[in-house]
């Protein structure tokens, strides 16, 4: 549909936002993440916790924990309405080191003027994937007194970025000189009401422009199977890459706390009991995560897993290895140590 662009300096491909990968035919972005998905590989993504710090080396240190185990790294955008380094800045640091970050955009903190500006900025800095979210309410975070924005919602946000990319214009109709080439993503939570309509909601998200989907934590495989069956019936697995969230639970206490305090998290009693009865709950939690990843991979229409291991990031590689979902594939990792890159930054 759009002609393939050749990188300016093929020798340095992927190491600098100024030298993007060549965009393959039929791809919407230059990104490695899209290439993995479109090649039909089972993708593994994870989440980086942006630091409460102005130190870029901390971002690279946190990212290096995932080296060789993940295809893309989501940079959260004030998750849980808590203030951290911005998603855009984390992504910009990561693209400089050659990583494939996913920009998370929440509608809570910015209006359409700011979001569209950041979308252009992110694309200019080499970001190739964006995840559109409504965002947690400000009341959930450390600044409950802040003004919530919610100018757009996750669906009109995806539509906005699609208009910018495919029609090369702002929402206002004003033309862009160069459209942002980004793969558009959306989230879905099949585990909370209205459960019967969650597949319809997914259809709406795909209609609005989502090409990949990352789900909320999945701890309930039967529920996921029901949801995926509905999604397949609606033909949705043919239209978007559906990536299922898998979580690492460190203890029964944390699991119980998450169930009641983190919006939208569903954990069956059976899993909480399993953690309770275990002598090594942390290890058990990782085992559970790896098992879920294996089971998820077996479900027809699932394109990958998204590992969320808040405060247990150092175990992500281990869990991915144990699960064996990558087979003998080794995702891209930077060759240089992050310390060298930090010096350039």
């Amino acid at each position: 549909m759009i002609d393939i662009e050749v990188p300016r300096n093929p020798a340095k491909v992927g190491t600098n936002p100024g030298d993007p990968l060549p965009r393959l035919e039929g791809h919407v972005s230059h990104g490695r993440f899209e290439q993995v998905l479109r090649a039909g590989q089972f993708a593994v993504t994870t989440e980086i916790a942006p630091p409460d710090s102005a130190d870029p080396t901390e971002v690279l240190r946190r990212a290096s924990l995932f080296d060789g185990y993940v295809d893309a790294i989501n940079a959260t955008d004030g998750s849980g309405a808590h203030c951290h380094m911005s998603s855009l800045a984390v992504c910009a640091i990561l693209t400089r080191a050659g990583y494939s970050p996913i920009l998370q955009v929440s509608c809570r903190d910015r209006n359409r003027i700011s979001i569209q500006g950041d979308t252009l900025g992110a694309a200019a800095l080499g970001v190739c994937s964006v995840l559109c979210l409504s965002g947690d309410d400000v009341g959930a975070g450390d600044h409950p007194e802040a003004k919530p924005v919610f100018d757009l919602d996750s669906i009109s946000l995806a539509q906005t970025i699609k208009i910018m990319r495919d029609d090369s214009q702002f929402l206002s109709g004003r033309k862009l000189d160069l459209a942002p080439r980004m793969m558009i993503g959306s989230s879905i939570n099949p585990f909370v009401p209205p459960i019967a309509n969650r597949a319809d909601q997914l259809a709406k998200k795909i209609d609005s422009g989502a090409e990949f989907i990352q789900s909320q934590y999945c701890f309930d495989i039967p529920m996921l199977k029901d949801f995926m069956a509905k999604a397949r019936d609606l033909g949705l697995t043919e239209k978007a890459y559906i990536i299922i969230g898998a979580g690492v639970l460190p203890s029964a206490k944390t699991a119980t706390w998450m169930r009641s305090n983190v919006p939208g998290v569903h954990i069956p009693d059976e899993l909480v009991r399993r953690l309770e009865q275990s002598e090594k709950p942390k290890l058990e939690g990782r085992k559970i995560c790896a098992e879920i990843m294996q089971q998820v991979k077996e479900i027809d229409g699932v394109a990958g897993v998204h590992v969320m291991a808040y405060r247990q990031e150092k175990w992500v590689g281990d869990v991915v290895k144990c699960s064996g979902v990558l087979g003998d594939r080794k995702p891209w990792a930077p060759e240089q140590s992050f310390a060298n890159i930090a010096a350039i930054t």
Partner: peptide
């Protein structure tokens, strides 16, 4: 909707169908 979502719901709905906020 406290988030004035016009294409909802969000992913934070409680298990009993009540609002997250």
């Amino acid at each position: 909707c406290p988030k004035t979502i016009r294409n909802g719901p969000c992913g934070g709905v409680r298990a009993d169908g009540m609002c997250e906020v």
